[in-house]
Simulated assay, not measured.
Amino acid sequence: MSVLDQIRRLNEKAIVFVIDRKVQQKLALWLQLRYKMPVSIVNGETSAVSKGGSATRRSIIKDFECRDGFNVIIMSPLAVGTGLTVIGANHAIHLERHWNPAKEAQATDRIYRIGQTRDVHVYLPLAVHPDRESFDVNLDRLLQQKTDLKDVVVVPEPVTESEMATAMGIVDEDRPGATTP
């Protein structure tokens, strides 16, 4: 709550990412009571296209962005993975972590878009036990290890042409022992 209170003092907007729909509903109600404003939810139940006048993901986000000053919207990181831009917000709070760090990154990327003019802040609240490694701390460590592994495998260090030729077994016939560039 202290993070949201600070965002309110800055008169900025935040997305709170939550996976569980019951938690989304309870959090929306609690935030509405605390901040005396409507708090929308975008999740798998929210239509991507209009069906008989019902609100769509884009219309809910547009309403969120158009409201002046402080605002909060709750989103499922699973439902907003691709195709949505929410540059009206510049704070992403991952209240409920997803086991796949790519899903978290994809959700955060909703506010890292062309047109974003403000610094973007990402928060990963953790429950910390004074004597033991809490579930949140353990999960955060595991997610970081998965991200580090992905970065090593998917984004290797640059490879020179010579190293590539050697790895492929291509030899320069004009120079014994040399590889073809």
Rank of each mutant, 00 (worst) to 15 (best):
P101M: 07
F70P: 00
A105Y: 06
T179W: 00
R118N: 14
G83K: 08
G52T: 10
G88E: 11
L142E: 14
A107T: 04
P156L: 03
I7R: 02
R97H: 07
Q106Y: 12
L95Y: 08
V86F: 06
K103S: 04
V120D: 05
D151I: 14
E133V: 13
L143W: 02
Q145R: 15
K22Y: 06
E173P: 12
G44R: 04
I73H: 07
L78G: 00
R9L: 15
I60L: 15
T85A: 02
M75S: 10
N43L: 07
A102K: 03
T179F: 07
Q24I: 08
S134I: 12
H129G: 01
L78K: 15
M168P: 00
I114H: 07
D5Q: 12
Y123S: 11
S50N: 10
L10K: 14
L142G: 04
A79K: 12
H129Y: 03
V153L: 07
L27Q: 05
R141D: 07
T46L: 11
P158T: 13
Q145L: 15
E133D: 03
P158V: 08
R34M: 12
L139N: 03
N100R: 11
S54P: 01
I19L: 10
N138W: 09
Q106T: 03
A89R: 10
K13Y: 02
R8I: 05
D140V: 04
A14H: 04
D63Q: 15
P125F: 09
Y123Q: 07
A102G: 00
D131L: 10
